[in-house]
Nucleic acid binder design. Structure first.
Lengths: 76, 76
DNA sequence: TCCATTTTACTGTTTTAACGGTAAAAGTAA
DNA sequence: TTACTTTTACCGTTAAAACAGTAAAATGGA
């Protein structure tokens, strides 16, 4: 999943939630501009901004790779 | 998965791959400082920097939420 | 042990994103 | 249509990240 698709998922969730960008901005403690940027796939936003927005929309991040099962095993 | 766990996964993958931070920095087209920051869970790094590093380490991002199935359905 | 590599940590400069403000455009409902 | 809300898009200022350089500390192998 690339940044563009992430942005689409976010916009979809916000719309379903009935929130405007300004609503999301306030809920996430961000400016409206960043919400706009994220939803347009801007890659230079801060990771923090993305994480805050994802939290507001109840979206979780997962990482996948051929090595992830080994990581989980070792980590317990 | 929060930023701290993402950082741990990244460090694990880099170690297994036998790469130093400088190696990763060159491969990802980033400075060594950002690799260090990401592996320490710094939330203010750019999303672009994280994505570049994930690509080098062959790690993919997925988003999970109760609404994701609807999104996938509608998107086709 | 010694030697080489890596990692940590800090610094100063340059680059740039975040922010609010504004306004036009687009959408929505009465 | 009108009126209202939202979105798009740009701006200037402010705040802060990216970066390379440096050096000390840690790590690992011979």
């Amino acid at each position: 999943m690339d940044v563009k698709e992430i942005s689409e998922v976010i916009k979809y969730h916000r719309k379903i939630s009935g929130l405007s960008r300004v609503d999301c901005a306030h809920l996430a403690g961000l400016g409206k501009t960043v919400i706009y940027d994220i939803e347009h796939g801007k890659e230079t936003v801060q990771l923090r901004s993305l994480m805050k927005l994802l939290a507001v929309l109840n979206i979780k991040i997962e990482l996948k790779s051929p090595l992830m099962k080994h990581y989980i095993n070792e980590k317990g």
